[in-house]
């Protein structure tokens, strides 16, 4: 499939795919829950949560990476605690998953939140009068109606995770085969003489994948919305 790429380039592409897939899958349940909270609930500290979710979008990625290193590094409070259970993020591909997940989280939450907000809350009221519990309402009414946003959010988050660079390289460095994703590989190839061709191939690939993800998410969201609405 990747005949036109060198083994090193292929390694970076496959690692990027793995990191992006895991970060999307792992952050999706939390993303749906946070989006639902922000769309449907009023509580003290809502603006704070909203701000925290969006922070990675605004902060310099190197700052996010630094904060992740402070918190999830082996010396950090969370990283140190998790290490006891054999969960290590620092300088490991799992750390790249975490960094990509955090950086892509705002995009995911925004898309899902919008689609929950545009789903008619009065339908949830109708379900209540028919005897639906909170859980049933969420899974039978809210979630299916928010499906277009969940799909868009996931694809955007996947594409964003695929291209995440600043936080990843700060948090987990640039280790071939472990944390060298497509952007880190492009960066590395640009630093060595004769690496321009490799860098160029990965650049073209990155542009192609990003465009494809954008077009696919738009198209899928429209199709799924039609299916959900029954038109």
């Amino acid at each position: 499939m990747f005949d036109w790429l060198s083994p090193q380039e292929t390694e970076a592409v496959l690692l990027s795919m793995r990191v992006a897939a895991w970060s999307t899958i792992m952050s999706l349940p939390l993303g749906i829950w946070v989006a639902w909270l922000l769309a449907r609930k009023n509580f003290v500290g809502k603006q704070l949560i909203n701000g925290l979710v969006h922070l990675p979008l605004i902060l310099p990625p190197v700052v996010t990476g630094y904060l992740l290193l402070m918190l999830f590094g082996t010396q950090g409070p969370i990283g140190g605690f998790l290490q006891q259970f054999g969960i290590v993020f620092a300088f490991s591909w799992t750390g790249a998953v975490l960094a990509a997940g955090v950086m892509a989280f705002p995009l995911m939450v925004r898309a899902i939140r919008l689609s929950i907000e545009s789903a008619d809350a009065r339908l949830e009221e109708a379900a209540k009068t028919l005897g639906a519990s909170n859980t049933q309402r969420f899974f039978v009414i809210t979630l299916p109606l928010a499906l277009p946003g969940i799909i868009t959010g996931s694809i955007l988050a996947f594409a964003k995770a695929l291209g995440e660079f600043g936080a990843t390289i700060t948090f987990v460095s640039n280790i071939p085969g472990e944390t060298r994703t497509i952007p880190s590989a492009i960066y590395a190839f640009m630093q060595v003489p004769g690496g321009e061709d490799s860098a160029m191939r990965l650049v073209v690939l990155a542009i192609f994948v990003s465009m494809a993800a954008l077009i696919l998410s738009e198209w899928l969201a429209k199709r799924v919305a039609q299916v959900v609405d029954g038109r």
């Binding site: 008619d120 009065r122 339908l123 109708a126 209540k128 005897g131 519990s133 009414i141 029954g230």
Partner: peptide, 16 residues
Amino acid sequence: EKRRVGYIFQDARLFP
């Protein structure tokens, strides 16, 4: 959800 009430809304509110 525990009242055993049937509610017919103005706008039907069927699940699309």
